[in-house]
Design a protein around this nucleic acid. Structure first.
Lengths: 193, 193
DNA sequence: CGTCTATTTGAATGTACTCAAAAGCGGTGG
DNA sequence: CCACCGCTTTTGAGTACATTCAAATAGACG
């Protein structure tokens, strides 16, 4: 496992100096995950940001009725984790686990803080990352309010065509905010067309 | 109208130098809005970020059926506007207008870029702002998926008790993702309790 | 092959929407 | 000061979208 991928991804947004690249590389903790393996469980303190090098992870929230709600699928090139827990030092309300064999890089909270304080470029990088994520998140809200479940599903499968191959449908249903049974009915209806 | 409010708000996150405060102050364009007055219309390029000094604005999206979907109410101390349009230079899909008499400060796109490039503190400030907004946005998604319309309304009125006094119910319904008729029925049901 | 989990199916139900109409409410002008 | 206008909110009946629950079927893995 190496850090070439993340460095080139970051360099699309900011131009890192040699020292900055090196510093980041030293801080990152590589880790491999097996399918279904947890990297973060709700109730725990979040200790790092998670960068996905390869594979696919999902982050979900379990409500008071015990129902899971997937809030994000993270594939190669995505950051994931619970920002709120990380920043405020409160227990996380999310769990994150691998859906497939995955290679990830962990950036510990302290390292992130040093990175942000000492190396200006990273402030810029994360500002851009968060700004983009915010735009996407707001678009998701709009889309969930102005479309039917069927439209949301069609949109989802067009946007993430490959995800469907290895993500169980029930998690996709959860991400779309519907029950697995209803997703099944939507899919049958679409097949018949 | 003055900039003391915004400066002190920013200083809660980063410590601005005198020169930085001054530079920001010079860039900000104060503006007063009357109720129902637009500051941004969908289809136009977004030219600035909007800081709300006083009053209340709302940002909404009009879907292909002509239905409005409120995505944000911005009261004193909030930033609003269309980040996506601002950053990418594409026409905005959102409209923003005042709900009450409001005083706002406009930060032009170019000024923002200079601010970010030349004054490190602002990268940090906006990184924090966007990060917090992202957390809130994700919580809103979760809440909209794991609660009924009634629960969402109760939560909303507890979280923004004052908003209800001057925001028409139909916009609150829109923000909650329900029809005005249904909100009316929810309210009656709650009154009867 | 058996077991466990995911997916599908169907019937009954519930939540929220649509449409149409009435009631309320604030402003404006005669 | 009241009548009228336009807009918001309420009401009710009928409907549609999505859920629940129970059970059958299909797939994956040891």
């Amino acid at each position: 496992m190496n850090t070439a991928v993340i460095l080139s991804a970051i360099n699309k947004h900011v131009l890192l100096e040699e020292t900055e690249s090196n510093f980041l590389t030293e801080q990152l903790i590589p880790k491999k995950l097996k399918p279904a393996e947890f990297i973060e469980e709700s109730g725990e303190m979040t200790k790092f940001m998670i960068y996905v090098n390869s594979g696919c992870l999902m982050t979900y929230y379990t409500d008071r009725d015990g129902v899971d709600h997937v809030i994000q699928f993270a594939t190669s090139g995505w950051w994931t984790g619970d920002l709120h827990s990380l920043q405020r030092g409160v227990p996380s309300i999310y769990s994150t686990r691998a859906l497939t064999e995955s290679e990830i890089l962990l950036l510990p909270k302290v390292s992130l803080e040093i990175l942000l304080a000492k190396h200006i470029k990273f402030e810029r990088y994360f500002r851009i990352i968060f700004q983009n994520a915010l735009v996407v998140s707001q678009q998701r809200i709009i889309h969930s309010y102005s479309s039917t479940a069927e439209e949301r599903y069609v949109y989802f499968s067009e946007k993430y065509p490959n995800l469907e191959q290895y993500v169980p449908l029930k998690y996709i249903a959860s991400y779309l905010g519907i029950t697995p049974e209803f997703l099944s009915k939507i899919r049958r209806k679409l097949m018949e067309k």
